[in-house]
Every structure is written in structure tokens, then in C-alpha cells.
Design a protein around this nucleic acid. Structure first.
Length: 750
DNA sequence: GTTAGGGTT
């Protein structure tokens, strides 16, 4: 037992063996070291591995010739000249994202067309465009520009165009041959986003068809296995192995070449636990406290799978922080601090960060750490790829992540907590070495780390593909089974998507219907598109634009789950009361709309959001989406007269009715029927018993509506409850009226 | 009684 009582305060009955602490002997030769051991003479016991790490977005902090990539410049240019496809393997800080487009520009590729560089995230596309523009002494939107949703900062002069992968994928509908581009660069390919994977397939089709012999394709990736991409393009049938590199003559267009770029990453020592941890939250709290009191200054980044764990760990650490502070001020003879803990007097600042956290709270993690303080950031995998935090020297990795998988047979989405892949664990560990040598403490064993999957399964194998199949049909790809996927979707996933689109009326025996064409032009899931298109006949277009925009926006509400700090309790109560006042008893769609209307009316929007548990940023984003959708509908349907499709004159209740009717019509595939005397529902599709998610306004009701439609359908784990979320009451007779093929009067009555 | 992270002419 540890003498401070800091550990005892948590779980007295459980034995913990974090970082070898329990052994107290520095461990055997096969065991990972504790932080204290690594700092002492027994450091030789450490099972340390030095790894390179991969960056979030490969934005090097310095530029030009100092970068490691500079020495590869000629090799890269030669490879691009001689090969149609070049794969660049680049590690952290290699500068490939900024430098490769510049090399190509100076080599004349911009005189033959535009260089496009895709990024999985908008922030990366925008910031890299600014950096490259600066290096070329140009203004963004001139020679160098970027194209992301809501923002297309390009002009006729733009020759280097950074874009999100999703934007470029959309762009393909207009220009399937990428005819304006001389070079297409798929950056961060190892992330294997849905959009990047689709671009892979579209590019391969183009190369196979031989339509663009002059086009050059560069895949930039940090993955450990470049041969996967190489094999994919070589099997296009036009590409001899390695071209000139293996002495097969001149090489020539149509070849694939792999170039490795050295990185610039500080070494990171990696430690594993000697034994498996049952409770990674508690294990993390112990490890963080040990690092905090025993290690030199430097911030700590803890990776956890979700918000609930972050809040639980935050509570544990706050308690320990307070206790440590008390023991430092008032040493207790019966509970003395060990000598090694007395040298440090750093305070601890705990900062949670996850996507659903409102931005004003997220920024705390980015602020400079105050003097005499150690920042401890508790993060989901948002800190693995999307954001880079300064000052991190220590990483604590739970080894867990939440991943969605879509079951095509049942239609259920499942968000499962599971082990990270080797690649993700490396990425996480590498976060300790961005600015200086660092250390990573993994809360799993060396043996377990060997058993991890190499890569996280790509999104295309885990997603609902309805929207993707709709897009493919719009490109003219009628047989999606023969599409050259880098990794094929799950068995049955494409069939399921086709079936769903048929049920929705987007596809028939002849292919894409008129409705399908219209739906494919809207940047929303097909069912949301139908809400918009159906809304005109119900006279609720304006309202439905708002609802669909809100449904397209993640994290409108900010719910705190577990930790209830006393100081916040009053505020929570107030927020909860305010929310109930705002809620519409008939459902969550209507409640979202009410909240949005109120938000639009009030002058202090930020204050309103704080007092109602709303994420202000989400509503700002919803407003942008709404404007975009409105503009698209006008173009799609001709001169849509908003007023004519909105019954402004009718009473409020009648408006609510028409909105609910529209929901019933467009969402009949997501209808569910109450199963009295329980409070459960049964879905129409799949006939599965589901619970209304506890965040729904419906759970407040004494008597539940007989019929509802829902937006989300998911399960929180294997064998766990099924939930429907964002749920609104409808009348059974509306389902009969609007979806007679699926519902009969007798059926809905009983 | 409580879903990770991205992204869209």
C-alpha cells in the first residue's frame, strides 16, 4: 500500500499494479518500469521503445530547406515525373504537406493544371493553405487557395488547391475525370476516411480507363504498410512493378513508386503495465498522480474512450489533487508523503477535452500552462488526430477507443468501446514527443500490445453506406459491387444501402429516380433530404430546413453525465429546469426547433445557450448549414417560394401538426410502436425492442405516444440495450396515409 | 437512465 493514502482513498479492496508500483522492486527484466523506477537507478528495467510518431496534420513548424524532406526533393520530383502514382511515406514534421505542392509548382506542374491536395479536416486544409501561400509570397485565394464547405477561397488564378476530401468527392460529380487537375494528392491517406477511400476508387477507375495519362496521383501516408496502396494501383493492370527503380527500363507513366521521407520527431519512451488493468480509469488516476509528483515539469495527456470516463477521471483527480494539497500544507505523521513526492510542489490543472464539450471550455486545454502548474488534459481521440496540444511531455494511454460499426443485417449502429490498433497507440504515444523527448505510459501490457490489430478498420467497413451508394449512382456507377474499393465494405452493406434507397423511392428498377437525383444533390443523408423535399406539401419548408440543419449538427445539447461537483449543482438544476420549460412534450425534433427559434430571438445568444445546456457553436453551424440547404433547394427546384411553402398564417399548433406529419411521411422507415404495458417500443424495420434514450423529452411523459419516428437507432454494446434517440410522436393513421405500402389501418390501430 | 471522431456542388 502506498503511504500517502492517495491510493487508498479510491478503492481499498482492489489491488492495483500500475506501472509496476505494486511490485516496488523496479520490476524484472520483462516488466515495464514505473515512472519512479525510470527516473532512478533501476531504469534499466524499463521496457522502453523509441518510436516515431505520426502527426495530426503534417504542418511543420519551420519551413524550407531545414525540413527533412528537402533532401528528398529531387527524388520525389523524379518519381512523379516517371510514375503516374507515387506513394510518399512521411513521418512527423517531415513537411510533406506544405513542401510537395511547392516542389511541384516550381517544377512546372501548375502550368499544366491545378494541384489538388486533400485533407480529412477543414482546419488543416485552411491552415496549410495559409502556410503555403505565405511561403510562395502569395495571398490565399490567389495562387494558393482552399475549398471547404461554406468557404471556397479560390480564384481563376489558383493553381494549388487545398480541399477537404469530402469537398473534392462532391466536386467529382461535376468533373469525374479531374480534368482541371495536373496532380491529385491524397494526404493523410492512412486515416482512411470514407471520402478518401471513395477518392481512391474513383482515381483507380480513371487510371484503368486510361482517360488521363498525364494526371499524376500522389498518396501521402504515415502508415507502416505502403505496399497496400502500391498493390491497389498496380492491380489497375497498367502498372509494371516499380518502373525504372528496379532497372526495368525507363519506367514511364503508369508506374507506382514509393518514396520514404524521414521525419522529425523526438524520441518517446514507451512503458507498459506489467499486468492487465481491470479499471483503466482508476489506473489512469494513479499513473497521473505518480507522474505529477515524481516527474519533471511537462504536461500530461490522457487518452480515454469517451466523455463518461473523462468526467469520472476528472472527479478522481480533483479529489486527489485536493488531498495532496492538504498533505503538503499540513503534513500528517500517520499519512506521510513519501520522500520522492516532497520535492515537487507543482499544482495540477485538469482540462477535459472532447468534441461534445462546448468550445469555450475546450480552449482551456490550449491555454499556456500557468507557472508552478502541471496541466493534465483528459481527451478522447480528438487529441489523436484532430488537435495538437502544446507542451505535452507525458502521455497516458488507456488503450481504448469507441468505434461505430454498422450492422447491415439489423440496421443497428453500435458504438463499441474497444482496444486501439497498433497504429493508433503509436500515434497517441507520439503526442508526447512533439516538442521534446517524452514518455508514454500505456495502461496495458506489452503482450497485449503485440496482440492489437495493426490498423483501425477503415470507416468504409463500418459505416451505413446509403449516402455513398446514392452518390455513386449519381456519378453513373450503377454496379457498386464492382467498384474498386481499397477495402471492400462489409458483406451485405451495399445491398442494405440499395434496399433502403429503394424503400425511400430514390432507386427503382431503372436506376436513380427523379427523387434520387434531387436527394443526391443535397449534402445530407437521404432520409433528411426527403424531409426537405416532402416539407413543401406540408407547408413547413422553413421549419424543416431548421430541423434538418439541426439534425446535421452534432452535439447541440451538452449533457454532463457523471461527475456532479457541488459548486455546479445549482447551475445544473437551473439548466435542467430551463430545458424542461423549452421542451416540446411531443418530441425532440420539435424541441430542437423551439430551442433554435428562441436562440434566434434572444440578443444574448451565448448566455441563452449556457442557461439551457446548448452548445452555441452547434447552433451557429446549424445556421450555416440551413443557409446552404436553402440555397441548394432553390437551385434544385427552381424558384422556390419559401413563403408559399410555409404556412405562416396558421396557428402554432397547426404548424406543429404539419411538421409531425412531414416527419411521419419522410421517416416512415424509422417508425416504432409502443409495447404496452412497458415503456419500450418496437421498430417497424427489424421488429426490435428499443428504449427511448434518456436524453429524449419523451421520457418525461407519463403516458407515451403509441407511434413515434426516430432519427438514431443504436446499441451501446454487445447484448446491451437498444436505444432510439431524437424521437417525436406521430399518429398511426398518418403512417397509413403516407406510407400505405408499409402500414394498414388495422395494423396501426391494434 | 446516457454515443468516439471527421465531413458534404
Amino acid at each position: 500500500m502506498h503511504p500517502t493514502g492517495l491510493r487508498r482513498s479510491q478503492s481499498p479492496n482492489k489491488r492495483r499494479r500500475v506501472m509496476n508500483e505494486e511490485k516496488g522492486d523496479g520490476g524484472g527484466s520483462q516488466q515495464a518500469s514505473s515512472p519512479s523506477a525510470s527516473a532512478s537507478a533501476s531504469a534499466s528495467a524499463a521496457h522502453a521503445v523509441v518510436v516515431p510518431a505520426v502527426p495530426a496534420a503534417d504542418v511543420a513548424t519551420d519551413s524550407g530547406d531545414a525540413l527533412p524532406i528537402a533532401e528528398k526533393r529531387d527524388e520525389i520530383l523524379k518519381a512523379v515525373e516517371e510514375n503516374q502514382v507515387v506513394i510518399l511515406m512521411g513521418e512527423t514534421g517531415s513537411g510533406k504537406t506544405t513542401q510537395v505542392p511547392i516542389y511541384l509548382h516550381h517544377a512546372g506542374y501548375t502550368s499544366k493544371g491545378v494541384i489538388a491536395i486533400t485533407q480529412p479536416r477543414r482546419v488543416a486544409a485552411i491552415t496549410v493553405a495559409h502556410r503555403v501561400a505565405q511561403e510562395l509570397s502569395s495571398q490565399v485565394g490567389d495562387l494558393v487557395g482552399y475549398s471547404v464547405r461554406f468557404e471556397d477561397v479560390t480564384s481563376a488564378a489558383t493553381k494549388i488547391r487545398f480541399a477537404t476530401d469530402g469537398f473534392l468527392l462532391r466536386d467529382c460529380v461535376r468533373d469525374g475525370d479531374f480534368s482541371r487537375y495536373s496532380v491529385l494528392i491524397l494526404d493523410e491517406a492512412h486515416e482512411r476516411t470514407l471520402a478518401t477511400d471513395m477518392l481512391f476508387g474513383l482515381v483507380k477507375r480513371l487510371l484503368v480507363a486510361g482517360k488521363r495519362p498525364q494526371l499524376r496521383v500522389i498518396v501521402m501516408s504515415a502508415t507502416l504498410d505502403p505496399s497496400k496502396y502500391g498493390g491497389f494501383f498496380r492491380s489497375a493492370g497498367v502498372v509494371p512493378l516499380f518502373g525504372g527503380a528496379r532497372g526495368r527500363g525507363a519506367g514511364g507513366v503508369g508506374c507506382v513508386r514509393i518514396v520514404r521521407i524521414p521525419g522529425r520527431q523526438h524520441p518517446v519512451e514507451i512503458f507498459h503495465t506489467p499486468a492487465a488493468e481491470e479499471d483503466y480509469v482508476e489506473a489512469a488516476s494513479i499513473t497521473v498522480m505518480q507522474l505529477h509528483v515524481e516527474q519533471p515539469p511537462g504536461d500530461i495527456l490522457v487518452f480515454l474512450p469517451g466523455q463518461d470516463d473523462i468526467e469520472a477521471l476528472q472527479q478522481l483527480l480533483e479529489d486527489k489533487r485536493v488531498k495532496l494539497d492538504r498533505l503538503r500544507r499540513h503534513p500528517s505523521p500517520s499519512d506521510p508523503l513519501p520522500p520522492s513526492w516532497q520535492s515537487s510542489s507543482l499544482d495540477m490543472l485538469i482540462c477535459p477535452i472532447y468534441a461534445a464539450l462546448p468550445v469555450d471550455q475546450q480552449v482551456e486545454a490550449f491555454r499556456p500552462t500557468p507557472p508552478h502548474t502541471r496541466k493534465v488534459v483528459l481527451a478522447t481521440n480528438i487529441a489523436e488526430t484532430s488537435i495538437t496540444l502544446p507542451g505535452i511531455r507525458y502521455v497516458v494511454d488507456s488503450g481504448k477507443v469507441k468505434l461505430t460499426t454498422f450492422n447491415p443485417r439489423t440496421g443497428v449502429e453500435m458504438l463499441l468501446r474497444q482496444d486501439v490498433s497498433k497504429a493508433a497507440a503509436m500515434q497517441r504515444s507520439g503526442r508526447a514527443g512533439r516538442e521534446a523527448p517524452g514518455q508514454a505510459y500505456r495502461l496495458f501490457t506489452e503482450a497485449d500490445s503485440q496482440g492489437l490489430a495493426d490498423q483501425t478498420p477503415p470507416e468504409i467497413t463500418r459505416a451505413d453506406l446509403a449516402q455513398i451508394v446514392l452518390q455513386m449512382r449519381a456519378y453513373g456507377i450503377s454496379n457498386e459491387e464492382s467498384f474498386p474499393f481499397l477495402d471492400a465494405p462489409k458483406e451485405g452493406a451495399l445491398d442494405k444501402a440499395v434496399k433502403m434507397l429503394q424503400d425511400l423511392g430514390a432507386l427503382d428498377n431503372r436506376g436513380l429516380t427523379d427523387l434520387g437525383h434531387r436527394l443526391s444533390g443535397l449534402p445530407v443523408v437521404p432520409m433528411h433530404g426527403r424531409l426537405l423535399l416532402d416539407s413543401m406539401e406540408f407547408g413547413c419548408l422553413e421549419h424543416m430546413l431548421s430541423i434538418v440543419a439541426l439534425l446535421s449538427t452534432e452535439n447541440v445539447w451538452h449533457h454532463t453525465l457523471t461527475s456532479e461537483r457541488k459548486a455546479d449543482k445549482e447551475r445544473r438544476k437551473r439548466v435542467s429546469t430551463n430545458f424542461r420549460r423549452l421542451a416540446h412534450p411531443d418530441g425532440d425534433h420539435l424541441t430542437l426547433l423551439k430551442a433554435y427559434h428562441r436562440w434566434n430571438e434572444v440578443s444574448d445568444k451565448v448566455g441563452f445557450c449556457k442557461e439551457h445546456g446548448i452548445n452555441h457553436h452547434a447552433l451557429v453551424r446549424a445556421t450555416k448549414i440551413r443557409e446552404q440547404l436553402q440555397g441548394l433547394l432553390v437551385r434544385l427546384l427552381g424558384d422556390v417560394d419559401m413563403a408559399a411553402h410555409t404556412q405562416a398564417a396558421v396557428g402554432k399548433d397547426e404548424q406543429w401538426v404539419s411538421i409531425k406529419q412531414c416527419l411521419a411521411k419522410a421517416f416512415f422507415l424509422n417508425a416504432a410502436k409502443l409495447m404496452p404495458p412497458t415503456r419500450k417500443y418496437r421498430t417497424e424495420y427489424g421488429r426490435q425492442e428499443v428504449h427511448v434514450h434518456p436524453t429524449s423529452v419523451l421520457v418525461e411523459r407519463q403516458s407515451l405516444p403509441q407511434w413515434v419516428v426516430y432519427n438514431d437507432f443504436f446499441q451501446t454494446g454487445v447484448g446491451k440495450k437498444l436505444y432510439i434517440k431524437t424521437v417525436t410522436a406521430v399518429e398511426g393513421e398518418w403512417l397509413v396515409q403516407f406510407a400505405p405500402a408499409k402500414f394498414t389501418a388495422a395494423y396501426v390501430k391494434d
